[in-house]
Simulated assay, not measured.
Amino acid sequence: MNRQAGKVPRHWYDGAPVPLPAHLLSGLYGALAGLRRGLYRKGLLRQKRVERPVVVIGNLVAGGSGKTPLTIALVERLQAAGWTPGVASRGYGRRDAGTPRWVDAATDPGLGGDEPVLIARRTGARLRVDADRVAAARALIAEGCDIVLCDDGLQHYRLARDIEIEVIDGRRRYGNGRLLPAGPLREPPSRGEGCDFRVLNAGTGTDLVAGFGEWPMWLEPGHAVPLLGGRAKPLAAFAGQRVHAVAGIGDPERFFALLREHGIAVVPHAFADHHRYAAEDLRFGSDLPVLMTEKDAVKCAAFAGERHFSVGIDARLPEAFWIALVDRLSGFARK
């Protein structure tokens, strides 16, 4: 069964012909986006700088590419290095998107956003959701954060940044290379060349090779954790079994493939990215275990059963990447 809503157009990644209206709208979108970038570049639209270093993590395509696992890894590494990072996020998909809000592990994902709540639960870092990233960054600094990580902010030019990190989906990359809506791109591929770091999300595979100037990132699955509490199980415990697999992320197939790599027979249930779950979404008509991503699990705990499990993901990057990042930050004084 596939209940995915808002599925990406086939012409983005599957080689289908691009409809003529999409061609025309893509030209208009590109002109407006280019005009906006030019106004910031010439100083006619002013960037706002905050008192502490800002690191922006983002991508050029619409949809997920692995930003959240990387953001979590960045927070943890910076904390280990003695920094006090705070995370600024738009909080995409939350109900009261116009209201700034502090997010912690206990925040309702409907109010804080699924990804911000997940980041807060995994890291314990201060996290502020606000459509105004400048205001969010200033609020974090006022709370004692000495570095700001801006989740999904490459296109939010108003907030001046010191380091930009582009995350690239290693399997799908830039699709057909066209701008929205003819393709998946929010900005031209050349935009990524100006980023300080380019991270290639290779998933759990080893066959993807990072290109020149790209740092590989691998996703390492953790144990399956019962949503109702209890002892976690290694994924190997489900090998040879059929399970319902739930993924409401940018590329659900990535999660399904991860489970298959561990010998698990997957009955896939793909939902739209940031899907707002209801109890009936998880009624599949058979009493199999249900494995879902952490991002989905934060929204399903209220109506989960004893056979529902969350599978966490950790991002792994070469040690040379972390050395290079810390070296770039060495010129900034901590509070």
Rank of each mutant, 00 (worst) to 15 (best):
R101D: 12
S286Q: 15
R41C: 05
G86K: 03
A265Q: 13
V54N: 08
S330D: 09
P9W: 09
D114L: 11
L208K: 00
G240L: 00
E306C: 05
A272E: 15
R328D: 13
L45T: 02
A236N: 10
G331K: 14
V50Q: 01
V56K: 01
G112V: 07
A80E: 14
G192T: 09
A210T: 00
P109Y: 07
G15R: 13
L258I: 06
G98H: 15
P318E: 09
T99H: 13
T123M: 03
R276F: 00
G183H: 04
F256P: 02
R36Q: 13
P189H: 06
L325T: 05
L20E: 09
R158M: 04
R95L: 12
R316A: 14
D114P: 14
Q47I: 03
V18G: 08
A320I: 10
G64H: 02
A297E: 01
L288H: 12
P53N: 11
P9Q: 09
A304R: 12
Y29G: 06
T107V: 04
G331S: 13
G30L: 02
G175H: 03
I72W: 05
R316T: 13
G305S: 14
Y40H: 04
D104E: 08
V266W: 03
P221L: 07
L185C: 12
L329R: 11
I141W: 08
G229I: 10
S310I: 11
A182H: 12
R231I: 14
C150L: 15
A80W: 10
D151H: 10
A106F: 10
F271C: 06
Q79W: 01
R260F: 02
P53C: 08
F321D: 12
A33V: 15
A301Y: 06
P268N: 02
P289S: 04
I72E: 03
R186C: 05
V167R: 00
G194C: 09
G263V: 02
A31R: 14
A210C: 07
C195H: 07
R178Q: 14
I249K: 00
A131N: 10
L127C: 05
T99V: 15
P53I: 07
G183Y: 03
R231W: 10
L180I: 10
P181S: 01
L20F: 12
G34H: 11
I119P: 04
T107K: 09
R178A: 04
I72V: 15
